[in-house]
Design a binder for these strands. Structure first.
Ligand SMILES: [Mn+2]
Ligand SMILES: [Mn+2]
Ligand SMILES: [Zn+2]
Ligand SMILES: [Zn+2]
Lengths: 138, 138
DNA sequence: CTGACCTATGCAACGGAAGTGCATTATTGT
DNA sequence: ACAATAATGCACTTCCGTTGCATAGGTCAG
């Protein structure tokens, strides 16, 4: 728990009780988490607080936001030392059509694409959809 | 206009006046179109009708839906003979952070990715974000 | 031609999720 | 202990997608 406190402080986020709990929750789950997930897990907490906590975490590069095509924003902890904006840290995400969970495949970077003249890429999002390892029974 | 009528009929969609107009509108625009865009263009028409028209078009593979990360569903005409589900027809999309427009780059297919054991891909979405050709002044 | 039938359209309302304003409470540093 | 700053709680809003149901329009068999 001291570890978490330190991580937050390092990134310029005051380690309140709520924030520590949310970080811990994210760390325990190996999948991307939505605001609604967190809301369900912390029934006592206020939605807005959770919302703003996630946003703060994102601004301070503690989590990255994931758009998996479901229309629901998901979040997952960043790798230590990750700068989500850099091309090198852009990895792909996998969304399972069966269990509806989304996971980071941090070791799979987004391939570089040669765009037509005039197009300048600053960011990229690659989502694969299908059946995840848990659901494929393998 | 006869052409459009034929295209709709071929795909099992009855060519009503409204549908012809919407198809024409999509054909004239070279960018991906949202329901709200169409609503603005056809002020007299009912939102629901436009919505259902787009959905019908999508089911019948006349248009494909584009998730460009803005949280707003966009649509663009399919290439003739395209089967949006097939890997070969999956192309990338580019969203301009400046003019907020999204375009199909139909000639840029999504590269094949080797996934870890147990993951089975059925679909993919790749969106690049940055500055488009019009906005980069080139 | 006409009525039965199916499809498309119009109108109204709902729902989920993101986001904002403002008052209150907690934390920090002097 | 006090003032300043940051976090939290509560209420409310907006946006977009979506659905139910009633009506209008087109299609086809008799
Ligand atoms: Mn990720
Ligand atoms: Mn496209
Ligand atoms: Zn799964
Ligand atoms: Zn642009």
């Amino acid at each position: 728990m001291k570890k978490i406190e330190q991580r937050l402080t390092e990134n310029g986020v005051r380690p309140t009780a709520m924030r520590l709990l949310i970080y811990k929750y994210l760390a325990e789950k190996e999948v991307a988490i939505s605001l609604t997930d967190i809301e369900a897990a912390f029934a006592k907490a206020e939605r807005t607080t959770l919302y703003r906590t996630l946003r703060t975490f994102e601004e301070k590069k503690i989590v990255h936001q994931i758009d998996d095509g479901t229309g629901i924003q998901k979040y997952a902890l960043c790798e230590p030392g990750c700068d989500c904006n850099l091309e090198q840290d852009l990895h792909l995400h996998f969304h399972c059509n069966n269990c509806d969970e989304t996971v980071c495949l941090t070791e799979h970077k987004i391939p570089h694409i040669n765009l037509p003249e005039g197009f300048v890429a600053e960011d990229a999002n690659l989502v694969l959809k299908g059946i995840c390892d848990k659901c494929s029974g393998q």
